[in-house]
Design a protein around this nucleic acid. Structure first.
Lengths: 191, 191
DNA sequence: CTTTATATATATACAAAGTATATATTAAAC
DNA sequence: GTTTAATATATACTTTGTATATATATAAAG
């Protein structure tokens, strides 16, 4: 998959590994996590397979050590076009270490779960602001890139309102339990 | 992560690998992909580390070969509790081979992208029906499991309306382009 | 009553994704 | 001139995910 992300980005302009990582973070940051440990081995493999070509640039006027500038080859463009045209099989996955825990919070301390939910609300409120600001910057991007940015905002908004709703429900549940503890006859009546 | 998913499930009841896979698919199906190739090596490691114990059951009255029934140990419960209590660091990732392509559809045939979007709409309309049906079944589950099921429905609904909106935008874009081809003066005037 | 299909169950080899860390160059700050 | 920060590449390692091989017991087909 990362292979195709790299080939896709090289359609826009020639790039070196360091720059590719920045672009992937910008464009697919909320879809795929990315690391140099994935970039460089992939670039090497793509080069060995003849899907990209490389020029070493020793003096670039800018900061830092020499760069390896990669371009997509005709073979690379064909391979990418083939991938783009076929139908994606696998469904989406919402991978989140917070949600993985959430399922099991019933086994732990409920008030601790409210703390973690508050942290998440703070995080995604901050993220949402950033995303909305970026939306305006993308006016000159293509329609697909803009729509993906919209999706990011929609996802963020949906998740935030779900977090807030969940917090409310959990707090109600906690206070209901407390009440039952102090007035046991209520529980007996309800059960 | 799968390690903790397994430990978490074993809190409910003792299980063998085959059954664990079913439960993970049910409970985290839209969060994590799961395979026997992940289950069995993880069970082996958890057993070697003393976090779970095992009993071989040769005759169970039911279909199939002997089972290895696993239980969580005290050590396992402690390890799980520690994990559950700490704050999740990494943000959510929406991993989707369709969305990965979507970003680049500008490089391909736009009407092909509409076809793929239609396939996605069909898929997620079917999924949404199934999810809404399952919501009712979960009334006796704990509050956290119910809230996660709600999130699944919300995500599905949000994604579907985004898909439909995207399709509309793309079709408008296509017809605008067609018009410009047949009446070139419009483009000149607009540009 | 034997073959075949199906659901159950485990295991392992392999590929792709993700983490951690080492190394080196240059511009700017102190 | 020495430290700091940004730039840049590389590799070892772990976790996640795919593919496939193997085997048992029951139900169905012939």
């Amino acid at each position: 998959m990362i292979k195709y992300a790299i080939l896709g980005l090289l359609h826009y302009t020639d790039m070196h590994g360091y720059r590719i990582k920045e672009h992937i973070e910008q464009n697919f940051g909320n879809m795929w996590s990315i690391n140099y440990g994935q970039i460089y081995p992939n670039l090497k493999k793509l080069y060995d397979d003849g899907l990209i070509s490389m020029t070493e640039i020793t003096q670039n006027g800018e900061k830092g050590p020499p760069r390896k500038l990669y371009s997509i080859t005709e073979k690379g463009k064909n391979e990418f076009a083939g991938w783009l045209d076929n139908s994606p099989e696998k469904p989406m996955l919402l991978r989140d270490p917070f949600l993985m825990r959430f399922v099991f919070y019933g086994f732990g301390d409920m008030s601790r779960s409210v703390e973690v939910i508050d942290d998440q609300i703070k995080r995604y409120e901050k993220d949402l602001k950033r995303r909305k600001k970026n939306l305006k910057k993308r006016d000159n991007s293509g329609i697909y890139v803009q729509l993906i940015a919209d999706l990011g905002v929609n996802l963020n908004e949906m998740f935030l309102s779900w977090l807030k709703h969940s917090k409310k429900e959990i707090l109600e549940n906690i206070s209901k339990n407390e009440q039952e503890k102090t007035n046991p006859e209520i529980r007996r009546a309800a059960g």
